[in-house]
Design a protein around this nucleic acid. Structure first.
Lengths: 200, 200
DNA sequence: AAACCGATTGACTGGTCAGTCAGCCAGATC
DNA sequence: GATCTGGCTGACTGACCAGTCAATCGGTTT
């Protein structure tokens, strides 16, 4: 009756190939044929599974970003201190990069930081991440764990911007990217934002 | 003998038109014909003054970025406190945006945050900005104005990332962009990075 | 064993543009 | 007023590539 499951999931194969090719050449510079070749699959099959080249990137982004949103919201729901919540968010993003640098590169470079072209479609989802972080900050201010004279939106943008900038630095080899750098980054970003650079 | 000066500088006219069109449609989506139309100039004239469409963007970026580099290095040379130096840098970038939002949008969106495609060529110049900021931080650590347990490179990336994220927020209408917001941003970014979110 | 059906193939097409180029025109020079 | 020169013009072309589609394949059902 059933048994229709193919031995290999070609759709997944195409998505994984796309990650590699997008990471290597960038979205605009990759031809659909490149994806098909990398996946070891015929050109037309890409269009069997996806409406367009854009939809492939859409799928990659949505898949990963929803995890990020879930992680942020879960951190927020926890009983931890506001600072620990922020550290959890930073940790999740840094680990995402460490675990799958190519996918994160694609998401950051081609979507998140490409709000003018491709990212435009996803601005609402991207914004949700900012908003969720802002909520953590605002709650922290409510409970006097954070000072209230720095607008929560400003603070959340600064926090997220700092993290994304670090990822960019790693992606483009502007700063060293060893395992210890990743670990340090998690605490240092949070330390910078929460404690500040000036001695206490 | 001389008197060859045209009444209007067509080259400049093309550059200014390009700023507007790039800001409106994005670099990839603008055809060279769009630039020529916007400038009120024949298609071919663009190629009289520029080798390629890329070179137009190159020119815009280099023009502006060299000002930024000069401003950072000047801030560094001043006698002010490290914190005041950072505030000067933040102030310059924010003012650049306030004074000419379209140009800054193009530079941030199409170059700085597009390191995979166009920005790749300019990575060295972009990096110089990061390095100059890092030097300010490192000097601050040397003089004990800043704590030394946060790596200067990390800190400078965080600082710059925070600012760029704010610009992105303004560019894409994610956060309010009034004159008071701009003024606040200058001090708040510095306050966040130097003092931290937690109360002192 | 015939009909069926979804997965798979890859040649082909239509549209889009960046960049070229042959020549025009207006002011300067002789 | 003839010639020259360089800014300026815009039609044209060659390359590129996303997306289409008709055909094939291999397993299933009747």
């Amino acid at each position: 009756m059933a048994s229709k499951a193919p031995p290999v999931d070609k759709r997944r194969q195409i998505l994984d190939a796309a990650i590699r090719v997008f990471a290597r050449q960038g979205f605009h510079a990759t031809r659909v044929a490149d994806i098909a070749d990398e996946a070891g699959v015929a050109y037309g099959l890409v269009y069997h599974y996806f409406k367009s080249k854009d939809e492939v990137l859409n799928e990659l982004f949505t898949e990963r970003w929803s995890l990020l949103l879930a992680a942020i919201e879960e951190a927020d729901r926890s009983e931890a201190s506001p600072r620990a919540k922020l550290e959890a968010v930073a940790g999740f993003i840094v680990d995402s990069f460490r675990y799958d640098p190519e996918l994160m590169k694609v998401i950051i470079v081609e979507v998140t930081r490409a709000a003018n072209s491709f990212g435009r479609t996803h601005l609402p989802e991207i914004r949700r991440a900012y908003d969720s972080i802002a909520k953590i900050v605002a709650d922290g201010q409510q409970s006097n764990a954070f000072r209230s004279d720095i607008d929560a939106t400003f603070a959340s943008m600064s926090f997220y911007g700092a993290i994304e900038q670090l990822l960019s630095g790693w992606i483009f080899d502007l700063i060293p990217a060893s395992d210890t750098d990743f670990e340090q980054a998690k605490t240092l970003v949070t330390a910078t934002i929460c404690d500040g650079l000036e001695p206490r």
